[in-house]
């Protein structure tokens, strides 16, 4: 493995071109492609929605939306589930497609085609959205009461305040690192097996589909975990009464 493989994790991949002061990397172009595909698909699927679904595509999309709402209802209740499902379902679908894009042959080795979630910059951005949503919805719901739990109980404030702030800041950190490390680790394992099979023992190629099957499961679980944790954090910030 070349050292550039190691560094790819940190610097967000090779810079393809500049857009003003911003650097556009392979992960970003792949993310744009995925976004375009998803937007086009859902635009096509929801083009002429009717109150009574007549077409199969509307039925499919409504079924998907109802699964999401039903799942989040179990965590945060009907009202907030309907309110936050657009964001959380977008997280899930985007991350799932991004993770699975890494299983397409050539991913990571073709210029401009790198699974977006294998870069910390992308997952960090997603986790930042979660962080801002938690703060914004908490403040909108409870006003200054959102910050009350840092000062409870009042005589422990000198300890609880720094702990609370650290906890709040570690959440997006661990959320993004978990997703990024999983996808990136999977890519590295695939790469290592392929290299070993090519250079040493061709029989090792048998391992590739096995690992890819595992990656299918992991990709789903990681998208699920990210969405679930985001939902739990938002729920905690907007919960009524206790806390």
């Amino acid at each position: 493995m070349s050292s550039s493989m190691y560094l790819a994790a940190g610097d967000g991949g090779k810079v393809l071109f500049h857009l003003g002061p911003l650097e556009v990397t392979g992960a970003l172009t792949t993310l744009w492609a995925i976004m375009a595909i998803l937007v086009l698909f859902f635009w096509w699927a929801t083009r002429d929605i009717k109150e009574m679904p007549e077409t199969g595509k509307q039925n499919v999309v409504e079924y998907i939306v109802e699964i999401f709402i039903g799942f989040f209802e179990g965590i945060m209740g009907r009202e907030r589930a309907v309110q936050f499902t657009p964001l959380l379902a977008t997280f899930f679908i985007l991350i799932l497609v991004s993770n699975y894009s890494g299983l397409i042959p050539g991913a990571g080795h073709i210029t401009g085609f790198i699974p977006p979630t294998s870069h910390w910059a992308v997952t960090g951005g997603l986790a930042t959205v979660t962080f801002l949503t938690v703060q914004y919805s908490g403040i909108r719901k409870k006003g200054w009461g959102h910050f009350k739990h840092y000062f409870e109980p009042i005589y422990l404030t000198p300890i609880m305040l720094p702990l609370g702030i650290i906890e709040e800041l570690i959440r997006p950190f661990s959320l993004s690192l978990r997703l990024f490390a999983n996808v990136f680790g999977g890519e590295m394992v695939l790469f290592a097996i392929a290299t070993a099979a090519y250079t040493m023992q061709p029989a090792l190629y048998v391992l590739l589909p096995v690992v890819m099957g595992l990656e299918l499961i992991f990709g789903f679980i990681q998208a699920f975990i990210f969405t679930l944790l985001s939902a739990v954090y938002i729920e905690a910030a907007t919960a009524e009464g206790h806390h």
């Binding site: 190691y6 994790a9 661990s174 690192l177 490390a181």
Partner: peptide
């Protein structure tokens, strides 16, 4: 995964 990420940072 934190260990994994730390290892990669050190590798750099």
């Amino acid at each position: 995964l934190f260990v994994f990420a730390t290892v990669f940072v050190l590798m750099g």
